[in-house]
Amino acid sequence: MRRKTGLAIAGAVTLAWCEWLNWRWSRTLVGNSGGTAEAVVVLGYRNPRAAANAVNRWRVRAGIRSIAAGGAHDTRVIFSGGATGGGVTEAQVMADYATSVLGFDGTVLLEDRSTTTWENITNVIPLLEDVDRIKIVSQPAHALKARAYLRRQRPDLAERLVRADDYRPGEWLIAKPLLALYGLWAVRGLDADERKVSL
């Protein structure tokens, strides 16, 4: 009985720690930039088939729910990702899912050349120059890594970063330990000042 209780407590502590890590990553390197013109950048995930996989479907939903209330007409959603296997790019797969399955009818832009997170950021920069607020959507650690890359490439644009709605308590609960391990690996190259919680 004690062993079962100990395992249950250890499991609960592990899940709480994983939730805290993802919460923390979602609130790092973001501010409170004002204005109405907004860009939501959704980063793609390896998608060898023409239909969106589970990760890309979730990222698209998180991107759409990240649009500020009442701001759909002033928001552009940028799907970023090149081809990683078949002929269809990650960007196109995500855009198709957003429009045909979710019925999104806002402004959609595609960045379909990048194959790394660094390239995602490099290639979307021209699409961000005239917006007031920038949200980057992915799993929280991956989004943090992308925000750090924007800060390195264009500090002036990084000042416009605000929090996306890509973290919700309990979401991906069963996978949170794996996501936390991946996250720790993903952010290992960030500097100490790139890991400070902003909000």
Rank of each mutant, 00 (worst) to 15 (best):
G6R: 06
L7R: 09
L7T: 03
A10G: 11
L15N: 07
C18H: 04
E19F: 05
W20T: 09
L21G: 03
S26R: 03
L29D: 09
G31R: 14
N32L: 06
S33W: 00
S33H: 10
G34S: 06
V42Q: 11
V42P: 15
L43M: 14
Y45C: 04
N47G: 04
A50W: 04
A51N: 12
A52D: 02
N53H: 11
G63L: 05
I64D: 00
A69Y: 01
G70V: 12
G70D: 11
D74A: 12
V77P: 10
G85Y: 03
G85V: 01
V88R: 06
E90L: 01
E90T: 02
V93S: 15
D96K: 13
V101S: 10
G103D: 11
G103C: 00
L109W: 09
E111R: 13
D112M: 06
D112L: 08
W118M: 15
E119T: 01
N120H: 12
E129Q: 08
D130T: 15
V131M: 09
K135Y: 07
I136F: 02
Q139L: 10
P140H: 05
R147A: 06
Y149M: 15
R151W: 08
R154D: 08
P155W: 07
A158T: 07
R160K: 15
R160N: 09
R160Q: 09
R163G: 05
R163N: 07
A164K: 08
D166K: 05
Y167A: 07
G170A: 03
W172L: 12
A175E: 10
P177Y: 07
R188F: 08
R195W: 09
R195L: 15
V197L: 13
S198K: 09
S198Q: 14
